[in-house]
Each structure stands twice: as structure tokens, then as C-alpha cells.
Design a protein around this nucleic acid. Sequence first.
DNA 1: TATGAATGAGACTTCATTCAT
DNA 2: TATGAATGAAGTCTCATTCAT
Lengths: 204, 204, 204, 204
Amino acid sequence: MEKKRSRIQIINQQKVLEAGTEIFAKYGFRGATIDQIAEVAGMSKPNLLYYFKNKKEIYIGVLEQTLNKWLQCLMEWEVTGTPEETITNYIEKKFEFSRDHTAGSRVFANEILEGAPILKTLLGEDLKRLVDEDTRVIKGWIKDKKIRPIDPVHLIFMIWAVTQHYADFSAQIETLTGKTLADEVFYKQAKKTVTQIILNGVLI
Amino acid sequence: MEKKRSRIQIINQQKVLEAGTEIFAKYGFRGATIDQIAEVAGMSKPNLLYYFKNKKEIYIGVLEQTLNKWLQCLMEWEVTGTPEETITNYIEKKFEFSRDHTAGSRVFANEILEGAPILKTLLGEDLKRLVDEDTRVIKGWIKDKKIRPIDPVHLIFMIWAVTQHYADFSAQIETLTGKTLADEVFYKQAKKTVTQIILNGVLI
Amino acid sequence: MEKKRSRIQIINQQKVLEAGTEIFAKYGFRGATIDQIAEVAGMSKPNLLYYFKNKKEIYIGVLEQTLNKWLQCLMEWEVTGTPEETITNYIEKKFEFSRDHTAGSRVFANEILEGAPILKTLLGEDLKRLVDEDTRVIKGWIKDKKIRPIDPVHLIFMIWAVTQHYADFSAQIETLTGKTLADEVFYKQAKKTVTQIILNGVLI
Amino acid sequence: MEKKRSRIQIINQQKVLEAGTEIFAKYGFRGATIDQIAEVAGMSKPNLLYYFKNKKEIYIGVLEQTLNKWLQCLMEWEVTGTPEETITNYIEKKFEFSRDHTAGSRVFANEILEGAPILKTLLGEDLKRLVDEDTRVIKGWIKDKKIRPIDPVHLIFMIWAVTQHYADFSAQIETLTGKTLADEVFYKQAKKTVTQIILNGVLI
DNA sequence: TATGAATGAGACTTCATTCAT
DNA sequence: TATGAATGAAGTCTCATTCAT
């Protein structure tokens, strides 16, 4: 299934994935055209199709890469500290991800919006494992009376929802505030406010 | 701009808008086809196009209808009570909206994801007004020391983000938990947890 | 599965089938292009695709129509007379078919050459039934000592092979003799010679 | 036109021709792809194209090779014996050819079906010569009252048609009888029946 | 001699939209 | 108001062929 990949193959595939992320983020799967992706990737359409058999393969590649980055982000989470430290760090990481992978985040959001036809399986496996683990940690905190007795999954969803919102809905946010996460001040303000509310919301 | 609309026109246009909401939610603007919408609306394609000049008009119609419903939801907010009552009520309303207008919410999300080409203007006007007003109210609370000094817009975004997440990302949520907002118990649990955290997060 | 077919639909579908027969006979399935068929049928490509979903559907339609005509030809065979009359009549019918349905015969030949991917099932059912019946009749003749004891299927194949040859290999025949079945004299000569040899070959 | 050909060239060209025969037989000229041929020949596509300038050249090569083999088969015919011996031997040779060069036979059939654009010239020359000679021999027999007065070319076509039928239509034959020429018993039966009928058909 | 990489031409197919009734 | 029929534009994908090494 996997061809041997030479240096140039790796480079070009990566080029395509990056271009694909950008275009799919902007136009969705159907809206994106191979032409656009090829143009951004700086290669001819048939050459692009030499590396990825068809449009869907590019899309899957983009999704997998994004999901992997996201999973990695979630896994880098240090759970050894206090709940305050840990949650602060978690939110920080997610905000960073939203800022640094805005396009990927949107492709991801689009896929979920359409019912996650491609990602469903992966989400049910890899992501589920991570959520289960986080849930366990949070339950431990609750048992130790370190945080209030809230439902762990909804806390997790809250953090995901908010941080992702700044990436996915940035058009709306920009229209309303004139700012995006790219604005350093705005970024810090958002992170700070969210962290504050969540921490005060759960810590005893 | 407005033609005189006979009874049957009104009925059929509404049929189309509902069908459009469903289909656009599932496949996005480009992914949706007029055929699909016509089929769901129970009329022939040319007949549908008799009511809406082209695909984009249907889309705009759906977006406007959804936005109006959402604005109405936001406006129904009673600001006369205590912050606790008010915020609780606000979150409740938004959760209801997510549950009862899942499809519309997704069409809306999709539009924002793609940069809100159609809605941008409306958002900058109608929604901005509402946000400004809410901001003023929240600032009043802060000044009166009724809630902690947090940045109002980010509080608003948080609430929007979380409640919308349950509609837009329900595929992911369902994969991870097996539940959706249609499940009464899950719905209440989600609403309760979110309300708790936010209230504890902002109240003094 | 079958739509209601209006007059114009029937007419246009038949136009397409005829054009398809001509083009598929000349260029084979892959070699044929929808453009060519549409051109011959006198309609635009998308309009043609309004009647047949894709190229393969046209092909299947052509094959089925040809097979049906052929089966009908085989069934019109009168088995009540003497072997001499019956065989003479059978060969005559097949020769007629080759002359009057040259293009269809070639499409058919092409399909068989490629392994009959589409027709295999039909051949195994309808045609098999006919062959079995013919075989029974021939065996009866043999038992009654009306013809020599030859293997019936090979006799049948012989007749098919020869008559079909004049349609399918007419390019070769024309190169070698300068004539085709369209030439009345040549047609009669061919039919007469073949009938003679076969009759003398099997009659006692 | 002829380059000096090294050992490896000869070997590789032969590999390509064999692969080409197989693939062209299965899919026809347009249906065959160079990739497929290269794969069967066990070499890369550009390497294959180093030996044959383009697809058509491979096709021509295959056709020429097949035609040569066929002509050789026809020429090996011993005309010195009695008509019975000679015809029996001729049919035998042709049956052998069909069994041993099934794929080539089909490529040939395909070419003729499409109007013999490539072979037409060769057929008009080399094959014509052979047919003329055979015709002369048969006419001699008729004049000597050794066989009945039938039209020689149609006798020749009959034999070609029948023997070729077992190669070209083997898909149909297999569907109807479950056998192919590869089955020794079936092969002998077919040859015997055909020989019998033809001999009885022409001998006085 | 051999092969990864690249491309232009062309085919199939979809789909929004219009026509005619 | 309603709909079968028709079409142009556009997009996906294949494939013979060439390039560069």
C-alpha cells in the first residue's frame, strides 16, 4: 500500500498536503478543486495526481495529518501538576493549536460538520482513548476534592469548543471585534479570559 | 425586491427553505445540489427555480432565516434579573436553539467557516448591535461588582462556542459518548455542567 | 427503476441505441466516445446523458437490444419440416441477420472477445435454453437416422461461426474478394455454398 | 527501419510482444494501457517505450507477429495428397493454431472487427496470394471431379470461420458448454465433427 | 539501458440553469 | 404554476508520451 518514498516524493507530498489544507479549509471538500490545490502546491494537476491518486486521497491525507497533530497536541499535556497548572497548560496548548493550525482546524471542523464520514473511525479509536484518560484524571481530582464535581466530558468539550471557536469562527469574531488570534494582544486576552472563567468555574 | 406573495408561494418557499436547510447542513453550499433540495421539498427542479432564481438565492434565504431565528433567540434574553438568572437563562436559550435548530446551526457554521462571504455584512450590523448591547450590560455588572472583571466579548464567545459546539460537532460528540442533544438526559447534563462552570467562573 | 417513458423518450432512446450500435461496432467500448454517439444521434452530450446515465448504460442497452434481436431470430426457426428444410431455413435466417445487423453483430462479437463481462449471465440463461432445445431436435433427427451422427453443439457452432464471420470479418472478406454481404450476388453465393456443404455434410 | 538489435533488445522486445498480445487480446487496442503491458512484461513504462516508440508500434508488432504465424500455419499445408488428406490436414492445422494462439487470434479478430486499419494492406498482399493459390488447388480438384463444385473462397472462409470461432468466441462457448479448446476431449470432438461435416460436404 | 517524475490532451460526468410547453 | 427536455461550463481523472537523470 505504501510506496517507497524518495526524498522528492516526501517533499512533494508535503507540499500537496499543505496546499490541500489551505484550500480545503477555504472551500470545503467539494468546493475545492484540484486545480487550485495544484496551483498553490506549485505543480501541474497531473503531477499532483501522480502523488495522490485522487481528490479524496488528498483530503484524507490532510485530515489524517491534522488529526495527528491535534492528537499530539492533546498528548503533550502534562498531568503531573496541580489541576490549576494542568488545566491552564491544557487551554494554552489548545489555543496555540488554534492559532498555529487555523486552516487544519477548519478542515477538521468541516469534516465533523458533514458527519465525519472519513474520520469517524479514527475518532472512535484514538481520540476516544485520550478522552477516556483525561476523564479518569479529572475524576481523580474530583474524588480528591481538588475541583468541583462537574461532568468531565462536558468540561473537555467546553475547552475544545471555545479554543476551536477562535479558529473556526474567526470570520465572525473578526467582523465583531476587528481582531483575530493573529493579534498578539487579542490572543492573550482571549486565553486569559477563558482560562480565568474555566479555572474559577471548576476549582474549589 | 419583495414580490406580492400568494398563499401557495409562501408555502412552497417555506418548503424549499426547510429542505435547503437540511441539505445545506449536510453537504455545504457546493456539496448540495438543487436536485436534492427539490427532492426533499417534493417539487421538480424547474419548479423550485421558479420560486428561487438560483442556488445562491436559496442559500441566502436559508441563512437569513437561520440568522433571524438566532437573533430572535438572542433578543428574547431577559436582562432585568440578577446576573445569575440572566446568564442561566441565556445559556438555556442557546442550548435550546442548538437542539431545535441543529441543521440551521450547521449551515451557519459552514458559512462562517468559509469566511462568511454572504453573512459578513449582516453580522457586522445586526449581530454587532446585539453584542454591543450585551457587552454594555455585562460591563454594568462588572462595574457594580456583581461579577468578576472579565472581558465581556470573550464571555459571550464562550457561551456561543460551547452551545454551538453541541450542534455542529455532534458527530464527534456522538462518536465519543454515544449521545446527542436529542437525548434528554444528556441534554440536561450538558446544560447543567456548562451553566455551573460559567456561573462559578464569573460570579463573585 | 424504469421511468415512465413518454413518446419522445422512446424515440430518443432508440436514436441513442442506434447511434451507439454504430459507434461501438466501429471502435469498441473504450474506443467509442460519448461525443461521437451524441453526434450521430443528433443530440448534445448532456442531453444524451439525460437518457442514459453513462456510457456503460448505453453499451448495455445496445448489447441487450442486439441479443434480443438475435434470440428472436433464432426462435423464429421452424422445426416442423424435414431436416433439410429446417437447416436450410436456419442458415438463411442467420445469414439475413448478419446482413441486416452487421453493426450489432460486431458489438456482440467484441463483447464476447473481451470475455463477455456483461452478457455472460444472459448467455448462460436465454441462449443456453435455445441451444438445449436445438440440441434435442438434432438428437431426434440422429436417432431417426435422418442425419449422420454428429455432435449437435458443434454443428450449431459451425453455423453460427460461418454466418457471423461474414458480418464480423467483412473487412477481411472485402479485402480478399472485393465484396460484402451487401452485394446481392455475393450474398446468395455465400449462402448457397455454405448451405450445400452443411447439408451434404450432415444428411445421410 | 531495422536497428541493429543486441541480445537483450531481442529478448525484451519479445517480452513486450507477448505481454502486448495478452493485453490487447483482453482489452482491445484502446482498452489496453501501456502500464498494463509494461507490468506483464516486467519492465517500467519508459523502458518499454525505449523498445517500442509508442503504443501503436507495440500493436503493429503484435499484429505482424500474429499474422506471420498464421501465414506460416497456412503455408505449411501439404497439397500433394488427396483432397481428403489435404483438407483434413488443413483443418487440423487451423484448430491447432486456434488452441495454441488464442490470444493472438483475438487481437487479430479485434483488428478485423475495427475494419483492419493496420492490416488491410498486408491482408491484401500476403494473404491474398495464399488464398489465390488455395483457390487454384481447389478448382483443380473440382475440375478433376474429386470434390463437388462449390465456390472455393467460401469453403476457405468456412474453415477459417469455424476454427477461429473456437478461439474468439470461447467465452460464449464456455458459457454454453463449460468447455474450451484447452480441454483435450472437447478439442478432439470439435475437430472431428467439423472435419466430418466439411469432408462429407465437399467430397463426392 | 533503465526509471522516477512530469505533463498535455482528452474523456467522462455532474450540475446549475434555461427552454418550451 | 408546473415540468420534461436540453445545454454550457466546469471539474475529475486517465493515459500516452516526454524529460531528466
